[in-house]
Design a protein around this nucleic acid. Sequence first.
DNA 1: TTACAATACGTTCAATTGAACGTATAAGGA
DNA 2: TCCTTATACGTTCAATTGAACGTATTGTAA
Lengths: 127, 127
Amino acid sequence: MAKRPALAKSELELARIVWRLGEATVRQVLEALPRERGLDFATVQTYLRRLEAKGYLRADQRGRANVYRSRVDPDRVVGEVVRDFLDRVFDGQPLPLVEQLINDRGLSDEEIEQLQRTLDQLKERKR
Amino acid sequence: MAKRPALAKSELELARIVWRLGEATVRQVLEALPRERGLDFATVQTYLRRLEAKGYLRADQRGRANVYRSRVDPDRVVGEVVRDFLDRVFDGQPLPLVEQLINDRGLSDEEIEQLQRTLDQLKERKR
DNA sequence: TTACAATACGTTCAATTGAACGTATAAGGA
DNA sequence: TCCTTATACGTTCAATTGAACGTATTGTAA
């Protein structure tokens, strides 16, 4: 379970695109980026290379280009990222963060319902 | 509302200590740090200075030492940090993050209750 | 009144990150 | 077969961040 080096912000940004696409070449990632991001092809290349070096992605040659795909389960990575954030900003306590999210930005009615259902299910599961 | 430069990780770590203490000297922050963190006095000094330069803290001389206190509302800063994180990792959608928190790490029974009360209150408030 | 210990402040230094350049190479169309 | 153009890959460069050093000062205890 070799601990990977942490993800830089731009790296996470690009990794998320690869995750969403399933697999992608440099060019495909570049094109999936919001236009206003304005990154250079070479820059995307560099970040994907770094993601590979850090163990998050793997690349295999397909014809001309490298095709990148995830090497670790994206959900696991997101989980790690969330936990790290939670530890750093809320001492690892989920509730204050949840309340922040609930209060700060207004949840829609459906979202509240949805959330209550999730909590009910969780309670069910627990007994 | 001059936008401050983003907080680095160590900076946020120290800022949170100052927030908690209300006000603090370099030494007090150093002592409030977990022993295993092992930072040098001079390092804490540097980070607090940077926090001041970035506009997060203000320092006033008291006797020999500088006393640092928050210059902006900590809750506001945390709010910004959370929103930035939410945008970067969950496209700004709070629900998936909340579900991550609920599912991944088991909430205690009391936490679930607490959360449900919060949601109920929120629904009340909304009508 | 002086010496010391604590502190401020300017400076440094290495690692990481954001961003891109230049060159060698190879795929596919003419 | 040859040329063009896309791409890989090694390299660079500046800004930020994590961490600390050295020196000048100053409050206080003796």
